[in-house]
Nucleic acid binder design. Structure first.
Lengths: 214, 214
DNA sequence: CATAAAAGTCAACACTTGTACACAAAAAGC
DNA sequence: GCTTTTTGTGTACAAGTGTTGACTTTTATG
């Protein structure tokens, strides 16, 4: 239980990584209603309790801060997926459990997911691009995973990507709704139920599928 | 070829509705990479070629401008849906045609769709809320339409909403991709094909469905 | 045509913004 | 322990911001 060493000024204890503090401040401010390019450099440093010029010691630019937030947020998301892949055992309640885990996780890391959701179409081109790339990557990873299921073994890569895209879009929809309703609890239950149904419906279509490419 | 009547100052000819010009300027600026709350009042009036104070003659607030843009954008979208409902005849190529029309339409009104996509999760709470409400409305309308199809006649409202939600999320995904790639043409063809497949897959699941409520 | 209302202009305000530069403290390297 | 880097501070400036109030022009209305 290492107590943080004394400080002669509040919040100086984590001065080790002001960089981290800047990132967190940005997320925090976005949580209080702002899109990323609505933020100002000074606003952020003010939140951290540091002088504006300090910002430049860590980031050349607001954009570079933003890109780091993208990376950070996807790291969060990937941690979830890693665990999910290890624990997920195909079976009756697999979908249900996955969705539950997902919703809980989104709640636990709301600021990261909010950032991604908000900047996916947001006002900064570089950030948008980066997110897009990562999502596409995610989609093809999911496609690979799906390809391991017996029913999907014979499917073309294209079609697998098509399904995973559909699923990811459904999940993004879920994220939206989680973010929109701040209370957890009953809202979540209904939400989870719907998401589960949606995924189940998609899966029901799979055995019927026959790709009739153009 | 009616040439616009003479003006003693550029763009004075449409001074009849500066209000419209302000709205358009906002959309235009957002098209050059900005999210709505990254815009400034002065920026907008400058774009129109009018003095900042003029803004207040038309809008009390930036927020009220934003809300009007939401309304305008949804009007655009609803026009499409209206036509779609009238012309759509169930059949072999119905899905394909609908998707084609949709993509073309999104291209033709990119700034409106961009606005909606960007501000759906964007930084202004009031705007977000308004969009959310409208999307939900759209979803339940689509649910009603779906309910008219024979296969879906027996479905509960809840389940119909679930399906329409899935479809709408898929289409939102399409919008993203259309916005991301500025060139039309071949990109669109592939995009249309994928969207078509996704919708078809959803529909294939439908006859297999049996709702097993919690 | 006169008059009232609506739409646009001008000048000014008190703030906030990004960034530059010179300096002080802290950490790291030797 | 001294020196060098790194990190944070203070001051300053030019430019942009939202909003005000008092004016002028345009448009509509009687």
């Amino acid at each position: 239980m290492g107590r943080p060493q004394k400080t002669h000024r509040a919040s100086k204890d984590r001065s080790l990584n002001t960089r981290q503090a800047l990132r967190e401040a940005a997320l925090e401010l976005m949580d209080r209603d702002n899109s990323f390019d609505g933020l100002s450099l000074r606003e952020i440093t003010r939140e951290v309790g540091v002088v504006p010029t300090t910002f430049y010691r860590h980031f050349s630019d607001m954009e570079s801060l933003g890109l780091e937030l993208v990376a950070e947020s996807f790291r969060t998301l990937r941690e979830l997926l890693k665990v999910a892949r290890q624990t997920a055992v195909p079976g009756e309640k697999m979908i249900r459990r996955s969705v539950e885990t997902f919703v809980t996780y989104v709640r636990a890391h709301r600021r990261h997911f909010q950032f991604l959701a908000r900047e996916r179409f947001g006002g900064v081109a570089a950030i948008r691009e980066e997110i897009r790339t990562e999502v596409r990557l995610l989609q093809s990873e999911l496609a690979t995973d799906l390809g391991r299921f017996p029913v999907l073994k014979t499917w073309s890569t294209e079609d697998l990507n098509m399904v995973s895209g559909l699923m990811i879009n459904a999940m993004i929809g879920i994220v939206e709704q989680v973010l929109a309703s701040r209370r957890r609890g009953q809202d979540d239950d209904e939400l989870i139920m719907i998401a589960e149904k949606q995924l189940r419906l998609i899966i029901l279509g799979v055995p019927q599928w026959r790709s009739q490419g153009d």
